[in-house]
Nucleic acid binder design. Structure first.
Lengths: 198, 198
DNA sequence: ATTTTCAGCTTACAAATGTACGCCCAATGT
DNA sequence: ACATTGGGCGTACATTTGTAAGCTGAAAAT
């Protein structure tokens, strides 16, 4: 194996190790360099060959999470075409998605209001992308102003993300109820802004 | 000073020390027993005379935060009577409140989706109280079902809390914009549910 | 073929942490 | 007046942490 390939491989091992350790009971902040190195199967000091410190690793994780968000958005859009309710389809897709990538989602959720300013703004940036895309869709669909569309999109994203957070630790049955509830909430938001004066 | 009085005094010193150390860059999880003890002006081992461990202290903090939430609710209600818009008054009161008690609010915000299950459920309980009170108000005001009122209240609380989180670290000007935005979002929610079919 | 590069290792150390153990002494109980 | 209680302290120890220094061996460059 070439040297570059090998290096990339261990780099991924570190990233995967970090994601793996992120669970309901373990936040990124509570993760230690040594733990990650152990899980990745390398010596603690070898970590520095790839990242200058844990923060740099963290920002990489946030970037990866951002990629996943975009993937989610695409997936939701594809399903919308040949289905009934846009909102219902989107929320259900979202729920499926976060169950599959729960640790990625947990990272975004926690660092969104976490202790590191760098992390907070990195997460905020990713979520802004997400909101902007949704706002664009809403604007075209509802013919409202770009400003209102963005405000509406932000509210929707907050509600969906929050529902996701609750759903992560819930049973299938409770998750179904959360989904229904969220759909209702989004419908209120969507309905309220459609007619500029009605 | 009586012994009981003295004990209560140090207990409060510990609690205050903990709240003091909670800032934008310091979560409860990243707080160490020794740090708290140092700030409170006692020896590390004296901590155990009041709390069996940091978790017990944490739950106490959450309880205190819950008390403050109820105080906030009362304060908002008082102002509503002799003012114009209910939503505007409430959101503005909320914003003022969290600026005054930012560390208390930060605790609730972080532990809401934190790493300790005990904390999460404790915070969830406090927020549920808050939602229930609001839902009660909405039900009477809007004559909608109790179930819908609760779902609506939950959405509102999530949005307001989230706005609060953003506002904490923002400039006065940005905070004003956040306030306006939130009011708009709540109005959509409120408007959507008032007429059961319209 | 020889030199250079560099990912990964081992060893080492200082700092911080949680907490067990036991002493002290002033408020309380008898 | 004497005994007990209990809050606060100092000491001590095992762990865990981040990271500095230096070695090794194989891939890459010459």
């Amino acid at each position: 194996m070439s040297r570059a390939e090998q290096k990339e491989k261990t780099r991924r091992a570190i990233i995967n190790a970090a994601f793996q350790q992120l669970s309901a009971d373990k936040s990124f902040a509570s993760l230690s360099l040594r733990e990650v190195a152990r899980e990745a199967g390398i010596a603690p000091t070898s970590f520095y060959r790839h990242f200058s410190d844990m923060d740099e690793l963290g920002l990489t994780l946030v970037d990866e999470a951002g990629l996943m968000l975009r993937q989610l958005m695409r997936q939701a859009r594809q399903r919308i075409v040949h289905n009934r309710s846009v909102i219902q389809t989107s929320v259900e897709t979202f729920m499926e998605f976060i169950m599959q990538h729960s640790n990625v989602f947990r990272l975004l959720l926690r660092e969104r209001s976490g202790t590191s300013a760098a992390f907070r703004s990195a997460v905020a940036r990713e979520i802004q992308h997400f909101c902007a895309e949704l706002a664009d869709y809403l604007r075209k669909e509802n013919k409202c102003s770009a400003e209102m569309a963005l405000i509406q999109a932000e509210a929707m994203v907050i509600l969906v993300f929050h529902a996701g957070a609750d759903a992560l630790d819930a049973s299938d049955e409770v998750r179904q109820r959360i989904t229904t509830k969220t759909i209702q909430q989004l419908r209120w938001l969507a309905g309220g802004s459609k007619p500029p004066a009605a």
